[in-house]
Design a protein around this nucleic acid. Structure first.
Lengths: 229, 229
DNA sequence: CGTGCGCTTGACTTTTTTCAATAAAGGTGG
DNA sequence: CCACCTTTATTGAAAAAAGTCAAGCGCACG
């Protein structure tokens, strides 16, 4: 695998000139993590930010009780830890690899120098941060304004949008992680999936596949117009 | 009041050169809103972003049920709507003035041109966005990992930090708005304040003033280590 | 082939919301 | 300055949503 090739594939770096890619490659460091390995811990000093070449990473907060809230799950080509680079310098949450993961690391100071000379690059950063901000607004909305069934419905619809077979959905994370991503616990998620099946809204096919039977019901759950009986 | 003076007072613009301030003032538009007046609505096209000269603005999401979640409350010198400028171009939430409010408006396209030539300015934007992202992570954490009493405790401690008399807290928003900011409803907030008073953790002095009697209890509530009986 | 992890289910508790009624506060015009 | 009206805050009782604890199943992996 080629470092530059990987950088080119990162959405934030798409369309940069060969020259710019070279600069990036110069400061980039490649690193691998095993399943469940910690990438960084909350409160740790942030020296770099990360781009995923391949693998999967979850960013999460931990309650004293042990309950965890996944803030975001990142996949191939995604960037994470970039906000910590530009504010404060400490990571505000934990990051661990969900599976074998290879990342590129961009050291903070070198990268900041780079964007100072490259208004193009800084506009991309701004775009990425803004995009993420919008996603977070939607997470906040989901947590506060929808019950768990509504959040699950939103998530399923979201997956359905990106799937080529809209009715068949493949989960690429465990249900435990899905629960934590939706701001709940596995037991509650399990019960709600069971209820949705009872009502003929979805059908569980094995452990990681879900078939959508009634997309209208899902949409009305997702918008908060209706509730599960 | 002087436009440039106001711009100079905005934290994001602090320390910019007179020249840079001039450029900003050239493109800036001043506008006023009455109490409860809508500044923008969710889904509306975003043509500018906003800086508050004086007043108070809440950004919020609305559920079909009518319940609202305040995402953020902005005050003098704060910036809002900036993320929408750089992503998508539609506002992801509503904004209304909580009281008589005067703002400066920066038209999107002109401002983007400005930062292209000014790496300094773009780094400030990046800093502002990153800071906000970190705040949002903390909102998500609060909503998902803490019960309402813990969120309230965090909020009171936060106010206490910025107050010069640490034990005496002045609320500058209604309790209804506070409830919505904490992701709950007025009834629940009211009950929890009553419980905290019962337990001697706080004392309500009139409608907008709270005296902290037991800061340790507040801290242990805020961290999620303890709960209210 | 067993051990463990992830998932499900049941019974129970806690937290929060809902609905309804009332009380208190704040602003307005007489 | 007071009476009135609207908005904001509080309280109670009941219902709903979500979480806890405990037990059991099943599949995957060593």
């Amino acid at each position: 695998m080629d470092k530059k090739e990987s950088i080119r594939n990162v959405s934030m770096f798409k369309g940069l000139s060969p020259d710019q890619i070279d600069h990036l490659a110069d400061i980039a460091i490649v690193k691998s993590y095993r399943r469940n390995q910690t990438i960084f811990a909350e409160g740790e000093d942030c020296h770099s930010f990360y781009v995923i070449i391949n693998g999967m990473v979850r960013i999460f907060k931990l309650a004293p009780s042990g309950k965890e809230q996944i803030i975001h799950i990142f996949r191939d080509g995604d960037i994470f830890g970039e906000a910590a680079v530009f504010s404060g310098g400490k990571f505000p949450a934990f990051a661990t690899a969900i599976k074998e993961t290879k990342v590129i690391l961009f050291p903070k100071d070198k990268f900041v120098r780079l964007i100072k000379d490259d208004p193009d690059l800084s506009l991309r950063i701004i775009g990425t941060l803004s995009e993420r901000l919008k996603q977070f607004v939607s997470v906040i909305e989901n947590l506060s304004l929808k019950e768990v069934s509504g959040r699950l419905a939103s998530y399923l619809l979201h997956l359905s949008d990106k799937s080529n077979q809209a009715e068949i959905i493949e989960l690429d994370i465990t249900k435990g992680n899905l629960a934590s991503l939706l701001g709940t616990i596995p037991e509650t998620l399990s019960r709600i999936l069971a209820k949705m099946s009872d009502e003929g809204i979805i059908e569980s096919i094995g452990n990681r596949t879900i078939k959508i039977l009634d997309i209208d019901s899902l949409e009305s759950l997702a918008s908060g117009e209706s509730r599960l009986r």
